[in-house]
Amino acid sequence: MWKLRDIVVAAILSVVCGAIYMGWDFFNQALTAAWSPVAQGLLNGLWWLAAGLVPYIIRRPGAAFFAEVVSAFFEFAFGSPYQFGAVISGLVQGAGSEVGFALGRWRHYNAGFMMLAGALGGVGNTLQYYFQYGGNKLAFGVMFGYFVTTVISGAILGGLLPKWIGDALNRTGTLRNFEIGRQARR
């Protein structure tokens, strides 16, 4: 059951992630313009950081989807070059990660499930890339490579990284009143 503080903290973290995404949009593009999409995929996972971080902290059904959509909306609002496409990204990536947590019936948030959720977020990302961002105009091998690297990146940057951040945050004691803190004490 969501508490009001879960929602507010999810919103704040999502706004922060939205700002990170927006910076990542430009930085990533400038950095990887000459890379093959296969290599580009390796950096994708950061774009669904919120979909890992927020559910890891508040541990509620729907947290991944909610956080990813809200953060993507703010990515758009802050002026992302992907414009409204960012919101669509949020929808598909969030849905992907949410499936991962749903498979654990929203009870398991260990490294394995974090990686699974992050990887499934990558599946969502790939779908959008294929239809909207020119994936279907790429050679098949390149496209498949993109899929593989994106899923790996999702597991790491969208799964393990948020777990690491969440654990560090939990050690500070600020998350006592959230599910992550409660479960850690049990």
Binding site: R5, V8, V9, V16, I165, T174
Partner: peptide
């Protein structure tokens, strides 16, 4: 961004708890 994250996030979490209580 990485080294600054922790203090900023703890601040944000505390703030959001207070806001929720105030609401």
């Amino acid at each position: 961004p990485i080294t600054y994250a922790l203090p900023l996030l703890t601040q944000a979490v505390r703030m959001s708890e207070r806001v929720a209580i105030a609401m």
